[in-house]
Design a protein around this nucleic acid. Structure first.
Lengths: 341, 341
DNA sequence: TTGTAAGCGTTATCAA
DNA sequence: TTGATAACGCTTACAA
């Protein structure tokens, strides 16, 4: 209980070596003779030495900290991403200082200032509060995922292709009226490309299309109401047609499916639905939902590749300029029971 | 680009004060005259000073780091907890170093060693890999949530009461055959108390009961298969009775509900279902699921209260003994459409 | 192969 | 109200 901290000095005194030699035991063990290594090793155990990386940081000027800001964790997309980032520790040895997004830019700036004061070497940003130009101005490597990324590096799903895949599947399902339902109407967000892919594909195939956008959705309740409203409109406007609904996320798709299921006890033949993300919701819904999978493992791997290479570049040449890199990851079409083949 | 780090020394040189005075500007501003404060403030801006908390840690011996180990983030319970913990930053100023659980105790021990080397002042542990006795031996404040907690502090939902609530609701629904379906059979886990509450309530009311346990479930697929198997058994064994199914989590309950819905197009009248956690799944399922809510906000608030008080106690008296505290948080009965009143 | 001594950027203790 | 000076625990030239 309450033992004083054991330091290199204590080990040095106990073994008769200098602090330097103890340091070398950890960093350049080859310089020591096996016997001396043995001696030090014993002393470390006897005195219950515990290493202190804070001191090491100060001396070396490297923290191996990466800051990570998620907007929230209620969308499984974000928690899944976070999980994968944390697991990169096994490869990269970066430790993650994590913040869950503020309600406003002010508190998020506070988070970032705090992160910088801990000398983070890079930042992963999933939240949308701060414009990329400001993030770039902090002059550390930053990589964004599925958010506005004009001035910073980013990794995103190839949303356009995802939109095309979903739309083509609905067309193969003989739908003659396609509808895009979206819970975020901002054009600067990468996911807006899903709509572009949808539109182009409808046009190319000469299929009628319709779309519902809604902004500022902060809760499941809001999403439910919006979906219900959209579905009512769809039923009223496109009666008699075979309707293919493409939702910008699985939660919305699931709500649509549930509404139909409660009404008809099944997915009626004149409806086809596909979601986006391939989140757990997609397989857990009453009828497993077709979806466009975002390959989160690949997204994270690529994000870390970019971040790590920029961090290394900075260590070689602290004044080097950080060129934003933008990577796209292929989506995957996941066909389940709300569409056929 | 590539500016050298600006330190107190630079500010001191620039203003003609000493480093000490600059430090005081931040920590004891009252000692300075307003004019001098002004001068320093200007200099900080001109030179673009950025504070360095790593140096501060070393000098002060306080990190304000809390380590946090989640088992994974695929169960929304954990990601929700994590989200709430991160948000306590606004009250407590603790920063969280987060690890997502290892596959085995060996890698998890590595995480803990790393955390300790960063001089964390406390540990929140949600994963199950390391026995509490070992965690206690690290001699820093530790608080566990919904895991084995013999030797460490913990905050848990009052699972027994939760079990009673669920069971009583099913009885009020005129069920005459109750079934508990559980995806974790370890008796040392707090959630086992749900079963005890279930059993006692069945006995007290003289209602027939049955139970299905399965261990080592690592994926949705396994959970699905287990649920399907259990439901088949239930249908075969208890035909003609009104069956009240109490699932140890909402995901299992949702699977059961989906299986019934696909078969019958509705929840048949001789079935009632209730889950546990009140996770998003519960409201998103085809028929909104009744559930026992774990009050995550309260759990986290209480966990931080315990942790913070032990951390403070340790600062006053580094040799003080850490008495494990165990708190229970009341669950809430959430009645939705898979049970009535 | 090992040691000396000067950092790293703060804070704490005294003294003025 | 301010300033020297010595920590904090480790790394890193440079020297031996």
């Amino acid at each position: 209980m309450g033992e004083k901290r054991v330091t290199f000095k204590d080990i040095a005194d106990h073994t008769g070596f200098s602090k330097t030699t103890i340091s070398r035991y950890f960093n350049k063990p080859d310089y020591l003779t096996p016997e001396n290594r043995q001696k030090i090793s014993m002393a470390l155990k006897e005195l219950h030495y515990k290493e202190n990386k804070v001191a090491q940081i100060l001396a070396r000027g490297e923290t191996n900290f990466i800051g990570l800001i998620v907007p929230h964790m209620f969308m499984s997309f974000y928690s899944h991403l976070l999980d994968r980032f944390l697991h990169t520790y096994d490869h990269f040895d970066y430790k993650f200082l994590v913040f869950s997004g503020g309600a406003d830019p002010v508190s998020e700036r506070k988070y970032i200032r705090e992160l910088l004061s801990y000398q983070i070497e890079g930042l992963v940003i999933l939240s949308h509060m701060i414009p990329s130009e400001e993030l770039a101005s902090y002059d550390i490597p930053v990589v964004a995922i599925e958010r506005e990324d004009r001035a910073i590096s980013s990794v995103n799903t190839d949303n356009y292709t995802g939109g095309v895949m979903a739309t083509e599947l609905l067309i193969r399902n003989q739908c003659d009226q396609l509808i895009y339902v979206c819970t975020d109407s901002r054009q600067e967000v990468p996911s807006y490309d899903r709509y572009r892919g949808f539109l182009d594909t409808c046009q190319k195939n000469g299929i009628a299309q319709d779309a519902f956008f809604r902004d500022s959705i902060f809760s499941y309740q809001m999403m439910y109401q919006f979906s219900e409203h959209a579905l009512n409109c769809i039923c009223n406007s496109h009666d008699g047609k075979k309707k293919g609904i493409f939702c910008s996320n699985d939660v919305t798709a699931n709500i649509m499916l549930n509404l139909l299921f409660r009404k008809y006890g099944c997915l009626p033949d004149d409806f086809r639905i596909i979601g986006f993300d391939d989140s757990p919701t997609a397989q857990e819904s009453v009828l497993p939902l077709s979806s466009i999978r975002q390959q989160i493992d690949l997204i994270v791997a690529e994000a870390m590749r970019i971040l790590d290479s920029q961090i290394r570049a900075r260590k070689d040449d602290p004044s080097c300029i950080l060129q934003p890199k933008h990577s796209l990851i292929e989506p995957q079409l996941i066909i389940r029971q709300t569409t056929s083949g």
